[in-house]
Design a protein around this nucleic acid. Structure first.
Length: 264
DNA sequence: TCGATCCTGTAG
DNA sequence: CTACAGGATCGA
């Protein structure tokens, strides 16, 4: 269930664990999409990169693997490729016997092989990285002005700024005191300034939390380290004003917000 | 911009 | 049993 912070943690862990490894085999189990992965065999892993919620594994021979974890994926190294869990959908055997695997119970994740020259096309349509110095309040405002979409699904669609999902989008809007249903172009400039700051602060804290969570032996889903203010708190009192947090459907997802603090 | 879709697991 | 899950895409 990863958003940017979790994908960042996964990527850093892989960078330490699998850089320099040589891929000798590949396979898949009831995959919905694992395109061209056989071409990874015989190549070395040069390093890992995160772009939005995508993980790119750069390989020797001018190629890369693009991995998207979707809702329940985890891309990780396991000690023995032969002992992989049944939830592993796609795997790469390494020369030393370990496995680089996409462990994904819901099987919504995706893996695809590409030539390095296809990088731009593969990542086409993704907005700016939130930690890029070019991501400024002015940048956010200029893009918001062009969209009538409600601000919360707009933040989640990856077109303006990448990495926010259902939790951190809701948290950022709470911190900036913006109603999630307000069309992006109608959000006041000063609120967008606050939103820009909130996105940076929240993701920074969340990345630190995610790295700690993923370092634990059990890995993954060890409860929530990031202190959520609204997400999954329907009916509970707002930490600012004690009003009950509401849950509404938006673009097929649940949005949580404080109707009083986030009235416009 | 809504709803369905891809899947499986879990909580109520 | 139904509802819903930290994602994204597709067609109407």
């Amino acid at each position: 269930m990863p958003e940017l912070p979790e994908v960042e943690a996964v990527t850093r862990k892989l960078q330490a664990a699998a850089t320099g490894a040589r891929i000798v085999s590949s396979g898949q189990y009831r995959p919905t999409s694992a395109a061209g992965i056989r071409k990874a065999a015989g190549r070395s892993v040069l390093g890992f990169e995160r772009r939005g919620k995508n993980i790119l594994a750069h390989l020797s021979g001018e190629a890369f693997l693009r991995v998207h974890l979707k809702m329940t994926g985890n891309f990780q190294v396991i000690p023995d490729i032969r002992l992989r869990p049944l939830t592993v959908r796609v795997w790469f055997g390494l020369e030393d016997g370990r496995g680089l695997v996409l462990d994904d119970p819901r099987a919504l994740g995706r893996v695809s092989f590409h030539a390095s020259s296809e990088r731009e096309q593969v990542l086409d349509g993704l907005g700016i990285e939130p930690f890029d110095p070019a991501f400024t309040a002015g940048y956010l405002k200029s893009l918001a002005a062009a969209s009538r979409k409600p601000i919360k699904p707009w933040l989640m669609d990856q077109s303006a700024v990448v990495g926010l999902g259902n939790i951190y989008a809701a948290e950022a809007l709470f911190q900036a005191r913006i109603n999630p249903e307000t069309p992006a172009r109608d959000v006041a400039a000063r609120k967008l300034t606050r939103l820009h700051a909130a996105i940076g602060e929240i993701l920074q804290v969340a990345v630190k939390s995610a790295i700690i969570a993923y370092e634990r032996p059990g890995g993954f889903t060890e409860g929530e380290l990031f202190p959520v203010a609204v997400y999954d708190r329907e009916g509970e009192p707002c930490f600012r004003c004690r009003t009950a947090i509401r849950r509404i459907p938006q673009a097929g997802r649940s949005t949580y917000f404080c109707p009083r603090c986030q009235s416009a």
